[in-house]
Amino acid sequence: ADFNLRAVANSNENDEDYDGLVVFKDFVEAHSNGKISVDLFIGTQLCANGTECLQALEDGSVDIYISTSGGAANMFPYVQVLDLPYLLRDDRIAEAVLSGDFVREMRADILADSDDSIRLMTIGNTGGWRNFANTKRQVQQPSDLKGLKIRTVVADLPQELVRAMGASPTPIPWPELYTSFQTGVVEGSKNGITDIMGMKFTEAGLKYVTLDGHAYMAALWYMNNEAFLDMPEDLRRVIVDGFNALQQATFASPKRKSIQAYQDFNKAGGSLYVPTPAEKEQFKAAAMPVYSWFEKNVKSGGKYYDLLVSEATKAEQAIAENYKSDLQ
């Protein structure tokens, strides 16, 4: 092949990221007539976390990488806008927003902040939506979360959210979370259902899940800008189309995977609660301090908050418009 691309995902082969990469690899290798080859490195063989891997991407020792918004927050703090709770109503809205100019705007900022070395290619999903889950009680409204110790990653925004709900944020490394539930070091977490079942957290007592859907688990896909621009335009088009196929695959994969996960959750004796629209409004109201915290404390926070809200509104209007004809 003329162009050998090295793609890294820090997850494993059961993850949505891997599904996306498999689709991408197949697409670009076939559509470039073998001019591009993609070598997959799944796990932590080349680099182990967001900061490291983004630096490797800058150096050009990694060509393609996927991070969550938390993983990129230390370098590009504004990507945390994707963690802001309750701004995207559902999958349809989120997918419409992430297929539009929002990604292009963010690409420009990330390029500028990385000396033109990191190019955001697309934003997909990795694991559906984050929900509040706990070992203690059924949570129907924000006040039910009061006093619970909720595990978060070491990042400001999720900690602010947990505080806004009256709970206490506790940073625990992911591999230690299981025993921490067992011993009561933490009493809850904010995760997607596939992660909860993948780690068998129900066996450690995590039995109550509230489908508040407070954050879309966005997956940001980047490429080394030079590796991209070095290609002739026809191959760049193949790459861009390949990332589009990857995005579609990661939109679909969690929906398929969560079916089994919810069945397993029920079988393990888990209890699922779907908040009423009124209760969801309460959650959103309780989360208000997070929005102002984000606008005040995060670089370009105001800009991205406004952009995400306006793009979401646009998507809601377009879908409402479509309903007029689709429902008749």
């Binding site: 630096q55 370098m75 070491v154």
Partner: peptide
């Protein structure tokens, strides 16, 4: 030199 672009996760200091 590159570390000035990354902030520590839990305190306000460049890495």
């Amino acid at each position: 030199e590159r570390g000035f672009r990354t902030r520590a996760a839990s305190f306000k200091l460049p890495r």
